[in-house]
């Protein structure tokens, strides 16, 4: 199971400190929640964990390998950061198939199964550009989990989802957690976050302001 260790992680962008000395450990088989107001550093931390931005100081190790030195990206990672982005002229299935072709780890059956799991129709011929916001979000979640990655990073995954969508999300995340995946999510809704997460970090001005361990998760 995956293990992420962040040690004194600092990130400066254009002279502004957006992450300020975060140290934490996250283990596979758990859902780790992050909460904070806009600008608190949630999305930046997720980008750092994904390898999309580099660390100014400190280190992030994933299964003993340092991100940015030993590895460029976590080797088994699914992400949904900020808004889902897909190709407008393709269907949901075609979009995921194109992504899956890069690593070759998800079969057509697995893609179709994942699309159905998020409540979409894998045979739907509708182009992505005609999807509603909720459908786009569901497809983004499907892209993050379709290859059964060891680490799943979801930034505000409940955005644009109705109550049935949030229930679907909970089911999927629980299933992925039971599989042994390490799931990192951010959510502005504390009630949803508490319901889903094993541990919650509250961020303020790029620092961990509070740590909450949910009992019985």
């Amino acid at each position: 199971m995956a293990k992420i260790i962040c040690k004194d992680v600092v990130k400066d962008i254009k002279g502004h400190r957006v992450i300020d000395g975060i140290s934490l450990e996250m283990d596979g088989g758990k859902i780790i929640g992050f909460r904070g107001i806009n600008g608190s550093g949630k999305t930046m931390l997720m980008r750092l964990l994904s390898g999309l931005i580099s660390i100014t100081e400190g280190s992030i190790t994933i299964d003993g390998k340092e991100l940015g030195k030993d590895i460029t990206f976590p080797p088994s990672l699914g992400i949904l950061i900020e808004n889902p982005a897909f190709l407008d002229s393709y269907t949901g299935f075609q979009n995921l198939k194109m992504l899956a072709a890069i690593k070759g780890e998800a079969s057509d059956e697995k893609i179709a199964e994942t699309i159905a799991l998020v409540g979409l129709d894998p045979t739907d011929k509708k182009k992505y550009r005609k999807y509603s916001l909720g459908m786009k979000q569901r497809l983004g979640i499907a892209a993050a989990v379709m290859e059964s990655p060891e680490i799943i990073i979801l930034d505000e995954p409940s955005n644009a989802l109705d109550s049935s969508g949030v229930d679907m999300l909970k089911v999927i995340l629980q299933k992925e957690k039971e599989r042994g995946a390490l799931i990192v999510i951010s959510c502005h809704d504390l009630a949803i976050l508490k319901e889903m997460s094993d541990e919650i970090y509250v961020l303020e001005s790029g620092k961990v302001a509070q740590y909450i361990k949910e009992e019985g998760q």
Binding site: S50, G51, L52, F73, L77, I79, I81, A85, F86, L87, N95, L99, I102, K103, A143
Partner: peptide
């Protein structure tokens, strides 16, 4: 979309 491609 390229972010997902790049990571993979």
């Amino acid at each position: 979309y390229g972010q997902n491609v790049l990571i993979r």
